[in-house]
Design a protein around this nucleic acid. Structure first.
Ligand code: SF4
Length: 331
DNA sequence: AATTCGGGGCT
DNA sequence: AGCCCAGAATT
């Protein structure tokens, strides 16, 4: 065994030993069911653990198996995802379930290449399913692992473009080729979540500090400069006809398949909003304003009326759900 | 390679 | 107020 391999072997052992003692018990860590692993990985994309915990268990009450998800209506799937954001994840997960039930006998594939062909599954999620559900030595690279590995090798180039990205993938690929690849990947992520944190890493209690080359870990990872924030205003109408409200079904890509208030095309200077709020979509800060309106003579093709009692069951993005709740509650 | 896609936790 | 988060798809 050469020097590098010897170091790697000890590194893996130290990290896994720490994880067994200090790792958190999370719902998706106490199962090897590929469906449950997949749902957790889809929900956790760009979403913090505490947020996912509010959705995870309820998901399986609604869709206990991959097959039940495959047979569900997209509207119900989006409704269960309501509030989590990045709704294409829900639509892709639904499409994924239908594909696997239709073409794979209801069993998720375990090899990376097949997993990558499924909708919504990229390099990270494929590796996560392969390693967590099937215990295969597939690398993962998420925000936690990026931070840990970049600091370990003191990577000072940007981690969100080449050649930094490939450097990290190769390192992850090398390290996972040891015993218990699934546990190792979990441990790597957990170190990033609990010890090797973004602002102030707790190096003094780090189980792999003797392997770490970062001189100023708080300055790593480095990222490309992000786009400037752009402010936008969006105007909507509150149109009531008896016990019904006019809504619009989004055709996407933003909020595709979900219901919002109908867009207002022209606002007169003297109109005063009946509701307003700010919310953000990545680099956009959106000032949402709702104006009272009259029922249009001709209904736009994507608009339709819905009874007040049915609105809770429609999938709606958070800002519009809040608008409707306030406007209905404040009668 | 750059941009888009949500929403909330945390400092 | 700004940064960050178990990323993927599209352009
Ligand atoms: S020593 Fe510090 S910077 Fe290095 S891996 Fe551990 S926590 Fe992160």
């Amino acid at each position: 065994m050469n020097q590098v391999e010897l170091q790697s072997t000890r590194f893996r052992a130290a990290l896994i030993a720490w994880y067994r003692l200090d790792g958190r018990i999370l719902p998706w860590r106490t199962t090897a069911d590929p469906y449950r692993i997949l749902v957790s990985e889809m929900m956790l994309q760009q979403t913090q653990v505490v947020t996912v915990l509010r959705y995870y268990d309820r998901w399986f009450q609604l869709f206990p198996t991959l097959e039940s998800l495959a047979h569900a209506d997209e509207s119900d799937v989006l409704h269960a995802w309501q509030g989590l954001g990045y709704y294409s994840r829900a639509r892709h997960l639904h499409q994924c379930a239908r594909w696997v039930v239709e073409h794979c006998g209801g069993k998720l594939p375990c090899d990376i290449k097949s997993l990558l062909e499924l909708p919504g599954i990229g390099r990270y999620t494929a590796g996560a399913v392969a390693s967590f559900a099937f215990n295969l030595p597939a690398p993962i690279l998420d925000a936690n692992v990026i931070r840990v590995l970049a600091r370990l090798v003191n990577l000072e180039t940007p981690i969100d473009r080449e050649p930094g990205k490939s450097t990290l993938w190769e390192l992850a690929e090398h390290l996972v080729r040891g015993p218990e690849p699934g546990t190792f990947n979990s441990a790597l992520m957990e170190l990033g979540a609990l010890v090797c944190t973004p602002r102030a890493p707790a190096c003094e209690r780090c189980p792999v500090k003797t392997y770490c080359r970062a001189s100023h870990p708080q300055n790593i990872p480095r990222k490309s400069v992000r786009a400037e924030v752009v402010r936008r205003q969006e105007n909507y109408r509150w149109i009531r006809r008896g016990d019904q409200i006019l809504l619009r079904k989004c055709a996407g890509p933003r909020w595709k398949g979900m219901w919002t208030l109908p867009l207002a095309d022209e606002i007169q200077n003297d109109e005063v909003p009946v509701f307003e709020m700010r919310h953000s979509v990545t680099r956009f800060v959106i000032h949402l304003k709702v104006f009272s309106g009259r029922a249009p003579a001709v209904l736009a093709p994507d608009n339709s009326y819905h009874r007040v009692k049915d609105i809770p069951d429609l999938p709606m993005p958070t800002p519009h759900r809040r608008s409707v709740d306030v406007l209905l509650g404040g009668r």
